[in-house]
Design a protein around this nucleic acid. Structure first.
Lengths: 121, 121
DNA sequence: CTTGACCTTGACCTTAAGGGCAGGGTTTAG
DNA sequence: CTAAACCCTGCCCTTAAGGTCAAGGTCAAG
């Protein structure tokens, strides 16, 4: 299949597919005229990348999942490296939530201070 | 005072000061030779901007605080617009925390699913 | 009078994941 | 034969807050 077929089946744009390739996630063959040619497996790969990106992973962080698929697994997340990638992402999210929680506390304190100052005057 | 004096007193870089100016937060006068010239009030302004940026506000969002200072107030956050800006930022943080909390739930579910799949096989 | 420490503007670089366009080749249907 | 609909590479654009030169003007001290 050609790139626009892959994009349509996977639910992404043609430009996104080329970007995934530039990140090393796809290695399509080429026809004699230079057109990229994709397999049914590539559809699965692109869907997986799309799903993982929506979870906030970077394209680079999806790498272990794609390797897991290419290794012949039905699911991209059953390999140890995929589990590690999940845990890494969860840790990132936890860190970010903690930062934001702290930030929120500082903001509310500033807000109440400023409000009190106003009633005081 | 010159730009490097202001930067040193406010604890930022010269480039940051020029950036704040490009965002409309500073309007320094000019000496005959073209050098920017700053007042003591500008030091306060830059310190305020620095503090607000560290709270995750954008340069644009610091605008009401600076206006509040320039209006002659001792504190940048005692004006109604500043309080509104605080509340807006708190709401942003809350929304972001909610997003991340939801994301975390999805990630942990995927993780435990994948772990269970492995023990099942 | 020259060196070094200032100052100026301007242009490009940084992240992530593409979007949009230019300029060109290909292919398929009518 | 030609027009539509593909495909290719390559370039610049997007956000925020500056960082990093480059090329040049200015100013104080020795």
């Amino acid at each position: 299949m050609h790139i626009s077929d892959l994009a349509a089946e996977a639910g992404v744009t043609v430009k996104a597919v080329r970007y995934y390739e530039s990140q090393g996630l796809l290695k399509p063959g080429r026809e004699a005229n230079g057109y990229r040619i994709y397999s049914a497996e590539d559809v699965i790969v692109v869907r997986e990348v799309k799903a993982l990106l929506s979870l906030g992973l970077t394209a680079e962080q999806t790498y272990p999942f794609i390797e897991c698929l290419r290794a012949g697994n039905d699911r991209a997340d059953v390999c140890p490296a995929s589990l590690t990638a999940y845990r890494t992402r969860i840790a990132e999210v936890d860190r970010r939530i903690a930062e934001l929680t702290d930030l929120r506390a500082r903001l509310t304190e500033l807000l109440t201070d400023a409000e009190n100052w106003r009633t005081k005057v």
